[in-house]
Amino acid sequence: MKTIFITGASSGLGKATARLFASKGWKVIATMRNPKKETELNSLDNIHILELDVTNEASIQKAADAAISIGPINVIFNNAGYGLTGPLEAYTEEQITRQFATNVLGVIRVTKVLLPHLRQNKGGLILNTTSIGGLVAFPFSSIYHATKWAIEGWSESMSFELAMHGIKIKTISPGGIATDFMSRSLDIGNHDAYTSLFNKWLASFNNADSPLQFSSPDSIAQVVYDAAIDDKDQLRYLAGTDAIATYNNRLKVGAEDFRRSITKGLFYKD
């Protein structure tokens, strides 16, 4: 029985992935900040729940030690993260620091702590949830994009040093996911100098013409599962029809024309 270690398993993609892998006969180590609030995963077979705050180094080490004591880990799924939207001038220092601590340093630190375990087992796979926002950029998400582009670049660089130990690394880049991302998992900053345009940007999430259309968590979890078992030498996996269409459009028209199309009003139609 193979084992997957998942961060951010309390909701959305993390929870859907935990359910799917467990249903496929995998042992699942589902981690989250508040295990006492979990009422679904703890009733399913093959799932072990551990407390983990990816912004706390002691918590990471404790969860890693507990996970390894359960048995060999085959796949690490770095999924914990959240969105931050708004103009740069609106963000507090705490918001910026917390975004990087969760979306970037959390991924790096969890991987670093568990990497010796994978090396000792002479193989394994690291999966990182990035976003279509790690491959393209939209307005009012500069810090979020910075974190996701960081993980894309970090993952590509890591692929070289991991290969010598038989370890693979892959990124999962979803578009919109129909979860509570826009409420529970989204931090917002606003500034008077940008209010009008920013409000139009937020309204675009409910626009049928927006390139960001929401896929179910289960459909994105299937991409995660496929990436885990396909044994391909492939770094990036787009997930969701909107992510695929958006990225293909960027490749087709070129990065500069794609950027200019947004500037001309892709999301700001009256």
Rank of each mutant, 00 (worst) to 15 (best):
residue 214 F to Q: 02
residue 3 T to I: 02
residue 149 W to L: 08
residue 64 A to L: 03
residue 6 I to C: 14
residue 108 I to D: 10
residue 198 F to W: 01
residue 166 G to K: 03
residue 232 K to R: 15
residue 89 E to N: 01
residue 212 L to I: 15
residue 110 V to F: 05
residue 215 S to N: 12
residue 115 L to N: 01
residue 101 A to G: 10
residue 228 A to D: 12
residue 236 R to V: 06
residue 138 F to G: 08
residue 70 I to N: 06
residue 214 F to K: 04
residue 39 T to K: 12
residue 177 I to N: 01
residue 192 D to W: 10
residue 88 L to Y: 13
residue 27 K to N: 12
residue 168 K to W: 00
residue 156 E to V: 11
residue 105 L to G: 09
residue 79 N to C: 09
residue 76 I to Y: 02
residue 259 R to K: 13
residue 189 G to V: 02
residue 103 N to E: 06
residue 76 I to Q: 02
residue 85 T to P: 00
residue 195 T to I: 09
residue 200 K to G: 14
residue 166 G to F: 05
residue 199 N to Y: 03
residue 119 R to M: 08
residue 118 L to Q: 00
residue 72 P to N: 13
residue 144 Y to A: 07
residue 59 S to F: 07
residue 147 T to P: 08
residue 157 S to I: 15
residue 59 S to T: 07
residue 182 M to N: 10
residue 82 Y to C: 02
residue 17 T to W: 03
residue 262 I to A: 05
residue 55 T to F: 00
residue 52 L to K: 02
residue 85 T to A: 10
residue 109 R to P: 04
residue 248 N to S: 10
residue 73 I to Q: 04
residue 145 H to T: 00
residue 171 T to L: 13
residue 136 V to Q: 07
residue 168 K to Q: 13
residue 184 R to N: 11
residue 178 A to R: 04
residue 39 T to A: 14
residue 55 T to E: 07
residue 169 I to K: 01
residue 34 N to P: 00
residue 113 V to H: 11
residue 228 A to I: 13
residue 249 N to S: 11
residue 245 A to P: 08
residue 16 A to K: 03
residue 18 A to H: 04
residue 39 T to S: 15
residue 64 A to Q: 03
residue 117 H to R: 04
residue 57 E to T: 12
residue 131 S to D: 06
residue 178 A to Q: 02
residue 121 N to A: 10
residue 201 W to P: 05
residue 29 I to G: 00
residue 38 E to F: 01
residue 262 I to Q: 04
residue 68 I to Y: 12
residue 227 A to T: 10
residue 223 V to H: 11
residue 219 S to V: 11
residue 175 G to T: 07
